[in-house]
């Protein structure tokens, strides 16, 4: 597997990362190396093997439907880059 610059830019767009042309070329090389290493997986015989998403075979525990949280807007919004009238502000979104 070898990454083209174009493909790197597509992936970077999906991940919302701004990459300059030099960076993209650098990453293309490194990611190709990494995927070559990862390519060893193809060797494994996984016929009939169940994919494993969690280390432990447990089931989801449920939370009682109770309100436990109080309003902490002031504390949380002190962390925000831009806030107005209690709202988080971003550049205009066009639908």
């Amino acid at each position: 597997m070898s990454f083209s610059i174009e493909h790197i830019q597509q992936v970077a767009h999906l991940a919302r990362l701004a990459l300059g042309p030099e960076q993209a070329a650098h990453y293309a090389r490194q990611l190709s190396d990494i995927l070559e290493m990862v390519g060893q997986l193809a060797r494994a015989d996984t016929q009939g093997v169940e994919p494993m998403a969690h280390p432990l075979e447990m089931h989801q525990r449920l939370r009682p439907d109770v309100v436990t949280e109080t309003d902490r807007r002031e504390v949380f919004q002190a962390l925000a880059p831009a806030v107005e009238n209690g709202l988080y502000i971003v550049p205009k979104v066009i639908e």
């Binding site: 107005e84 709202l87 988080y88 502000i89 971003v90 205009k92 979104v93």
Partner: peptide, 15 residues
């Protein structure tokens, strides 16, 4: 919710 009105060139987010 995204609120598009009332902010100059911006959108307000209510979560």
């Amino acid at each position: 919710k995204s609120l598009h009105e009332g902010f100059a060139g911006a959108t307000g987010i209510d979560l």
